[in-house]
Amino acid sequence: MQMSAKAGILLVIILILVPAVAAEDSLEWYTRGQNAATVGNYADAVTYYNNALSLDPSYASAFAGKAVALNALGQYSEALDAANQALAIRTSTDAQDAMAYALFKLGRYDEAVAAYVNFTATVTNHADAYCNLASSYVQTGNPDAALKAYAQCANLDPHNADTWNQIGLVYMSQDKYTEALDAFNHATQETTKSAEIWNNKGLALAALGRYQDALDCFNAALTISPVYADAEKNKESVMGKSQVYQVTGSPTPTKAPWVLGGGTSPATVPTTAAAQTAVNVTESLPAGTIAVTATETQVATKTTYTPLSSIGALTAIVVAGIVFAGAKRRKN
């Protein structure tokens, strides 16, 4: 009888515990995954999403959440697989965004463009998506489309200095230095603590021939980052260009390439040996090399006259008098 009582108590305990275990269904695991991802616990989030998928292999939202978490962990190939599995079940903007981002980070820029175009056709208020679309356009050699996408990004997030910096760099690649300077001005209005932005602004000013302003920008970059090698080289390149020089003759200078990307190109050599030589400006970009040009105008030589001294003037008057008197005697 005592054994029967113990068995009954054990059965009650089992009956209480079993529903509690069963209650952890796919929805609850998915919710745990969402909560973990919200606070940045992406590894735990992946575990919870996998638990949900083990209970419901067709749980599209769990696949999408897993894709987002894997992207955050830098596991882009796995994220792309999860996003594709989600989209194979049903359309999901979260999965579309995750797929586009994974393609972008994997360097598959043509596919990223298509994915982001598809995503932004539905979600029109996602600034990062437009910026990533613009960056993908840059990588595929379509700067005009990139500028349009960056404009949409800046419209949604006008205080993002990096967006304005990227806009400026695209304009620099098109030799549109005034537009580039305007973009860099926006960037420095949003932050004064980026050495890269000050350096890029200096390059735009140098390309416009505003060397003293460019020098100020390079100095600002070096104040922030004293070991910024590109800014130091650029500063050395424009040193003295704001001064007025007198040269012999009227040389016709050629265009000197201003190379962005760390390379150094040959300096301009004007047609006369005494003429001043143009100097190059270099800077580093995270992706690719962009060449732009600037022209340096030579200053014509001024002719200088030296006035006669007082002794020279007196001598000239005496000689003129003697000549005049001699001429008068011969006439008489």
Rank of each mutant, 00 (worst) to 15 (best):
I13M: 15
V292I: 15
A112T: 03
I13H: 11
N165T: 12
N332D: 12
E78P: 00
Q243C: 07
H186P: 03
D97I: 10
M3I: 09
S242R: 07
A278R: 05
H186Q: 15
N199H: 02
L181M: 14
F104K: 04
Y59E: 03
N41P: 02
F119T: 01
L10T: 00
K302H: 10
A83V: 06
T295R: 07
I16C: 11
K201F: 07
I311C: 05
Y101W: 08
T289H: 08
R210M: 14
Q34M: 06
S77D: 09
A23M: 05
I89H: 00
S310W: 06
T188Y: 05
L314C: 02
L147T: 00
S58P: 00
A98M: 12
F63T: 04
W258A: 07
A327K: 15
S61L: 08
G33P: 05
G240C: 02
Y109I: 03
M99Y: 08
L80M: 12
K302W: 11
G65V: 02
Y245Q: 15
D216C: 00
Q246P: 00
Y30M: 14
A154Q: 01
D97P: 08
V12N: 08
K233F: 11
P57S: 12
V318H: 04
L80Y: 03
A154F: 03
I317C: 06
D216T: 04
A43K: 12
Q276Y: 14
R108H: 06
D25A: 13
A154K: 00
A154S: 06
V113I: 13
L314K: 01
V319G: 13
Y137M: 04
P270F: 14
A145G: 03
K105T: 03
T252S: 09
S310R: 04
A62F: 01
L205S: 05
A129R: 07
S194L: 09
N84H: 13
T252Q: 11
K235M: 15
